[in-house]
Design a protein around this nucleic acid. Structure first.
Lengths: 67, 67
DNA sequence: CATTATTAGGGTAATTCGGGTA
DNA sequence: ATTGTCCGAATTACCCTAATAA
């Protein structure tokens, strides 16, 4: 499965708020390929909500620590 | 690769929702020539669904996947 | 013909980009 | 190596009223 049209997208600021980081940091994650991003024709990034939630869930797993 | 007659057309609002931007932003893309547009006799813009989907796919970066 | 939602158009804040630095 | 901040420039978001679409 590749690009899903109709997926809910989040702005850099929204993702930054979820992770409690600076929007610039989210941009770096995208540049480093740690998170997928969609570019508007103007060059601004949008992020898939489902992927962001997955990443957040992984943080929770990290905090609890696997067995 | 000619214009296909009978191509499904999208409104500025629909395109805006796909990119998670304001409808006015889509209008600016059309004015700047970043996306093709068709004008209704009344002056409202319509966009080709195939072009929009192609644009979304091309501007999409998949960072997740098997190592 | 009347109604409701969307779009056009202009103008002004807010956000994001990109590079460089701490 | 990762994050936060400063800067200028570009892109985007929200304000309004009038016109178009359905």
């Amino acid at each position: 499965m590749t690009a899903h049209v109709g997926e809910r997208l989040l702005t850099p600021g929204e993702v930054a708020a979820l992770f409690r980081v600076d929007p610039k940091t989210v941009t770096r994650w995208a540049t480093a390929g740690r998170i997928g991003s969609i570019r508007t024709p103007g060059g601004h990034r949008r992020f898939r909500e489902s992927e962001v939630k997955t990443l957040l869930a992984e943080l929770t797993t990290e905090a609890n620590g696997p067995a």
